[in-house]
């Protein structure tokens, strides 16, 4: 397959769930409605939207964690994908090295491959001797470094990033952003999710705007970001309901 082919397509996807309130009482919560778009190989697709608009649920569907309640998601049988978030289930009692090994293996690496990728993770994270110490001795910035390095240095078909651009101090942020931009500019397929239109505008070639579980606009990032900004500015000026009301 070459760049530009469709890696993953989402057709008329709906998603909702029943949430238990108390005892047997449940409320049904609709999240996504008629969502249709595709992710092409090698592109960086931005998804913007405010809190509660359904971004996280959409990411879980793209990641294959949950199945949509309606519509379908099609992709090649074996695609590796990961959702980059910070501190993916770290065990605080274990060292950075052990955690990095586990995290790589959780993404489907063999033990040998995982061990090979560790030195790169150590170097990138700049944790030095702390890499061999338990994660509970880390500061939050150090934990973020470990999480970011582990997630970024593993190779997958589809990388999903959930607003994690600021992960450490300024120097590391710069390095992290640079590494991420390298990934984005490479053959790597990326889905980048943020509530900030400006951030999406900075890194993505194509974007979609999600509001209340529906795609309001999709296409050229500048256009979509402009519309989204306009909507958010209006909301700030006139006041309005939250996405979930």
């Amino acid at each position: 397959m070459t760049t530009g082919d469709i890696l993953l397509s989402v057709e008329d996807v709906e998603y909702g769930y029943n949430s238990r309130v108390w005892g047997f009482k449940r409320v049904s919560i609709p999240v996504l409605k008629d969502v249709t778009f595709e992710v092409r190989r090698g592109e960086t697709l931005g998804i913007m939207g405010r809190n509660g608009c359904g971004k996280s649920s959409l990411l879980r569907i793209l990641n294959g964690v949950v199945a949509p309640t309606g519509g379908k998601v099609t992709h090649p049988k074996h695609i590796s994908r990961i959702l980059l978030t910070l501190g993916m289930g770290f065990d605080k009692e274990l060292s950075g090295r052990d955690n990095a090994l586990l995290a790589s293996m959780l993404q489907g690496y063999s033990k040998k491959q995982a061990k090979q990728s560790i030195e790169g993770i150590k170097e990138f994270s700049e944790l030095g001797q702390f890499f061999e110490r338990p994660v509970r001795t880390y500061s939050s910035g150090m934990r973020a470094r470990l999480g970011f390095s582990t997630a970024l240095l593993t190779e997958v078909d589809l990388l999903m990033i959930d607003e994690t651009l600021s992960v450490g101090d300024q120097q590391f942020n710069k390095k992290a952003e640079k590494a991420m931009m390298e990934k984005i500019n490479s053959e790597q397929t990326v889905v980048f999710v943020s509530h900030s239109g400006a951030q999406v505008n900075k890194v993505c070639s194509r974007a979609l705007w999600l509001e209340d579980g529906v795609i309001k606009a999709q296409g050229d990032t500048h256009e979509v970001a402009k519309e989204y900004k306009h909507f958010m500015n209006n909301l700030a000026k006139k006041g309005g309901k939250s996405a979930w009301q």
């Binding site: 879980r60 990641n63 294959g64 964690v65 994908r81 990961i82 959702l83 978030t85 993916m88 289930g89 959780l106 993404q107």
Partner: peptide
């Protein structure tokens, strides 16, 4: 109790 891992990976 594996919820946090389940939300992020499809292990």
């Amino acid at each position: 109790s594996g919820k946090s891992l389940i939300t992020q990976t499809n292990v």
